[in-house]
């Protein structure tokens, strides 16, 4: 018998083992749901898959009686727009600040302590201020995501910039590069895959801020919907919405990872040369 640390499951076994917990959770859910519904057909806590399917097809494929919109898709579009805007702007700000402070000591001196302090402010504590300053519209929700994510990206990019071997920067200077050349041709291309990585890591936080902001003040969006139907204990809507949000998060993450692998093969295959 080999030691446990040397025991590696074969590839099909790994796939099966990976799927096993999901199957178990589903099975457990179905059993519990059946048991509750048998005792009380009007139970709302653990709806059957059929009930969830009905609720979602109502939201996704029938126009709302009140507004005529397909609520499920409208919610998805609104939420993704906010998330995309928030994360996009945060990435732009974070990348610029991180690059600037990482590359130029004269920018690091005044800005780095400020970025560190700002990144320590709990963004949710800023939400009331954002609502007061920007109102309850789109801007404050996007601003919350930016405040929550940009300092993290800035610090991550700053760290990555400082980690690029000094030898490379010196070599570039001996090849006649100006500061601008070094930033544009040496640092920026090498930081792009790191930016994608930072965005992937910050997407979880981005979703958190999005759903929190939508839950508190909004008229549509995935977060708004689940907070709204909570009042009616509509688990048949909440559970599929949560699954949908998870799926969206997974797809975005996967797309970013693939993009990075295709666009920057030198980063994923190799060392620092």
């Amino acid at each position: 018998m080999k030691r446990l640390v040397n025991l590696t499951p074969s590839k099909p076994a790994r796939v099966l083992l990976g799927l096993l917990p999901f199957a178990l959770i589903l099975l457990l859910y179905v059993i519990a749901s059946d048991a509750r519904l048998e005792a009380n057909p009007n139970d709302k806590l653990l709806p059957s898959f059929e009930q969830m399917g009905d609720a979602i097809s109502r939201l996704a494929f029938e126009p709302s009686k009140r507004t005529g919109e397909y609520l499920f898709w409208q919610d998805t579009l609104s939420s993704l727009t906010r998330l995309g805007l928030g994360i996009g702007i945060a990435a732009l700000i974070g990348f610029s600040l991180g690059l600037l402070t990482g590359a130029l000591p004269t920018a690091y001196a005044p800005l780095a302590p400020l970025i560190t302090v700002i990144s320590l402010i709990p963004p949710m504590a800023l939400l009331p201020i954002l609502f007061i300053v920007f109102g309850l519209g789109e801007l404050s929700k996007v601003a919350l995501i930016i405040f929550g994510v940009a300092p993290f990206i800035a610090r991550d990019i700053q760290r990555c910039t400082l980690e690029i071997p000094r030898e490379q920067l010196i070599k570039a200077q001996t090849l006649g590069a100006s500061s601008w050349h070094i930033v544009w041709r040496v640092l920026v291309p090498q930081l792009m895959p790191r930016l994608i990585n930072a965005v992937r890591l910050s997407l979880g936080a981005g979703w958190l801020f999005l759903i929190a902001a939508e839950g508190i003040a909004s008229t549509d969006g995935l977060g708004y919907r689940i907070f709204l139907v909570r009042r009616y204990l509509s688990m048949d809507v909440i559970l599929p919405y949560v699954a949908w949000i998870t799926l969206l998060a997974f797809i975005i993450d996967w797309l970013l990872a693939k993009t990075s692998q295709l666009a920057f093969p030198w980063h994923h295959q190799g060392g620092k040369a």
Binding site: P165, E167, Q168, I170, K171, A172, Q173, T174, L175, G176, V186, P189, Q190, F264, W266, H267, G270, G271, K272, A273
Partner: peptide
């Protein structure tokens, strides 16, 4: 007092651009 193109350098490692 800073490196320029009149003096080239080769380090033991990290002196080419990986990208």
């Amino acid at each position: 007092d800073e490196p320029d193109q009149s003096r080239g350098i080769v380090f033991q490692q990290y002196s080419v651009f990986p990208h």
